[in-house]
Computed example of a mutant assay.
Amino acid sequence: MILLRPTPSQHPYMSVDDSAIIHAVPPVGSQHPNYQSGKNYVLGETAYSPVTHFEYESLQNNNQGNNPDDRANHSDKWLRLGAGNIHRLFDRRTGQLCSHSGEISVTLRPGAIVDAIALFGMEASQLSITVTDPIEGEVYSMAQNLVAPLSQSGMWHWLFEPVRRTKKILITGLPAYGTAEVTIRLTAPNDSTVKCGEIVPGRATVIGDGEWDFTIGGDDYSVMEFDSFGVSEYAPGGYNDYLDIDARLPTHSAEAIKELFASVRGQPIVLAGEDTGRYGTLVYGLCQQPRIKLRNSKFSKMNIEMRGLS
Rank of each mutant, 00 (worst) to 15 (best):
I2E: 15
R5V: 13
T7A: 15
P12G: 05
I22R: 11
I22P: 01
A24V: 06
G29H: 01
N34E: 06
V42E: 02
Y48D: 01
T52E: 01
Y56K: 01
Q64D: 09
H74M: 01
R80C: 01
I86V: 13
H87V: 01
L89V: 02
L89K: 04
F90E: 01
F90N: 02
D91I: 02
D91G: 07
T107L: 03
T107C: 08
A116Q: 03
G121K: 04
A124R: 06
L127T: 07
T130I: 13
V131N: 03
P134C: 10
P134K: 09
I135C: 08
Y140M: 09
Q144V: 05
L150F: 14
S153D: 12
M155E: 15
H157D: 15
W158P: 04
V163A: 10
R164W: 14
R164Q: 11
K167R: 09
K167C: 07
Y177S: 09
T179L: 12
T179F: 10
T187D: 12
P189R: 06
A204F: 06
G210P: 01
F214I: 03
F226Q: 10
E233D: 11
A235M: 10
A235W: 07
P236Y: 08
P236T: 01
P236H: 12
D246L: 15
E259L: 12
I269W: 07
T276E: 12
G280C: 07
L282V: 13
V283G: 05
C287K: 04
C287E: 10
L294P: 07
L294Y: 13
R295N: 15
N296V: 06
K301W: 08
M302N: 07
I304F: 14
R307S: 14
G308P: 07
L309G: 05
L309R: 13
S310H: 09
S310N: 12
